[in-house]
Computed example of a mutant assay.
Amino acid sequence: MTSSILDILQAAAPAAGEPPAWVTFMPFVGMAVIFWFFILRPQMRQQKDQREKINSIKRGDQVLTGGGFLGKVIKVDDQYAEIELAPNVKVKALKSTISDIVPPTGSAPAND
Rank of each mutant, 00 (worst) to 15 (best):
Asp78Leu: 07
Val76Glu: 01
Asn55Ser: 13
Lys72Met: 05
Phe25Leu: 12
Ser99Lys: 15
Phe25Arg: 12
Arg51Phe: 07
Leu94His: 03
Val29Phe: 10
Thr2Leu: 11
Ala81Ile: 02
Lys48His: 14
Ala93Ser: 11
Val23Ser: 08
Met26Trp: 14
Pro19Cys: 09
Ile74Asp: 06
Val63Tyr: 02
Val91Trp: 08
Val89Trp: 07
Leu6Gly: 01
Met1Tyr: 09
Ile74Met: 10
Lys90Ser: 00
Thr65Met: 08
Pro20Tyr: 05
Gln62Pro: 00
Tyr80Asp: 05
Arg45Tyr: 02
Asp7Tyr: 06
Pro87Leu: 04
Val29Asp: 02
Ala108Asn: 06
Met26His: 03
Lys90Ala: 01
Gly30Ile: 09
Ile5Arg: 13
Ala13Gln: 14
Ala16Val: 03
Ala11Gln: 09
Ala12Pro: 02
Val102Leu: 15
Arg41Phe: 14
Asn88Ser: 05
Phe28Tyr: 12
Gln46Leu: 12
Ile54Asn: 01
Val91His: 06
Lys90Asp: 00
Tyr80Asn: 07
Met26Gln: 13
Leu70Cys: 02
Asp77Leu: 06
Glu18Pro: 00
Ile34Met: 10
Gln10Leu: 14
Gly106Glu: 03
Pro19Leu: 13
Leu40Asn: 12
Ala108Pro: 03
Thr105Asn: 13
Gln50Met: 15
Met1Asn: 09
Leu70His: 04
Ser4Cys: 01
Gly67Arg: 10
Val76Met: 01
Val89Arg: 11
Lys92Cys: 07
Arg41His: 14
Ser4Ile: 01
Gln10Arg: 14
Val33Asn: 09
Arg59Thr: 12
Leu85Gly: 01
Tyr80Gln: 04
Pro27Met: 06
Ser56Phe: 10
Gln79Asp: 06
Gln47Phe: 09
Gln46Gly: 01
Met1Ser: 07
Lys72Gln: 09
Phe69Tyr: 07
Lys75Tyr: 13
Ser3Met: 10
Met26Ile: 15
Ile83Val: 12
Asn55Cys: 07
Ile74Trp: 03
